[in-house]
Computed example of a mutant assay.
Amino acid sequence: MTEINLLARVFPTNLTKDGKTQYVDVQVDARDSRASGQTNLHLRSERVERDDNKPRWSYGVPYSTNQMAEIIKAAGPNREPIANKDGTQIGTVYGFKANVMPVTRGTGLVVNTKSVQPSDFEVDGDTLNNQFDSVRAAALMRAVQGRAPAAEQTGVAEQAKVNEPAIG
């Protein structure tokens, strides 16, 4: 897949102890035409069992510091801070475009960092919320298409409860 508009969610806490590898959640930008109707925009989603036996989703793919430098350079000023509920910056989202390919080990896709370039879309304070809204709308549409009579009898809020990995 070539020239896909992507978003990279980068958190300093996902840097390895030796500082050579960054685990990054890369997603197809919901505004890219290939994201239409997708209920999961992450390039990699892996279900992981926690110590308390509750499942969670892992989206991180390892990129070297040199590969991250290429992504950040391609994004240029097209970035936005990620803040926690208190307003403290905990990470950054970068917008860029690149080719993707299957990972060599495991499942999912990885960015070909030799192909990175500026995104067609501007990253702003609403970008990550738009990602969530796009996934939710696609999940709702799938639920409605699969259960049309039930969708007519229940509410939209009920139809939005679909077991898909959540963004965020």
Rank of each mutant, 00 (worst) to 15 (best):
N130M: 04
L43D: 07
A148I: 15
D86T: 09
V116F: 11
A75G: 03
A30W: 06
V123A: 09
F132Y: 05
A151Q: 02
E164L: 06
T104C: 01
L6V: 13
P165C: 00
R44G: 07
G76H: 13
V144C: 08
S134D: 12
R136K: 11
Y94R: 09
K97N: 06
P55M: 09
E46L: 02
V48Q: 14
G168C: 13
T127R: 02
E46S: 02
G146V: 03
K54D: 10
E158P: 05
Q117F: 10
M1K: 11
T113D: 11
D52M: 00
A157L: 14
D126T: 15
K161V: 09
N78W: 05
Q153P: 03
G19D: 05
R31Y: 06
D29I: 03
P165T: 05
R56S: 15
R56D: 09
R34W: 04
D52T: 03
A83F: 00
A69P: 01
E158N: 09
V111D: 10
T92Y: 00
V116W: 13
R56V: 09
K54Y: 08
D18G: 08
H42S: 15
T104E: 08
M101F: 11
G91V: 14
K73W: 01
T107M: 01
T104D: 05
S33R: 07
P118K: 06
H42W: 12
N130V: 04
G168L: 08
E122W: 05
P62D: 12
A74Y: 07
G37E: 02
V123N: 11
K54Q: 15
A35I: 04
D29A: 14
Y59K: 07
L15D: 01
G108L: 09
V135Y: 00
V111L: 12
A98E: 11
R142N: 06
S33M: 03
S134K: 09
K85C: 01
V111W: 14
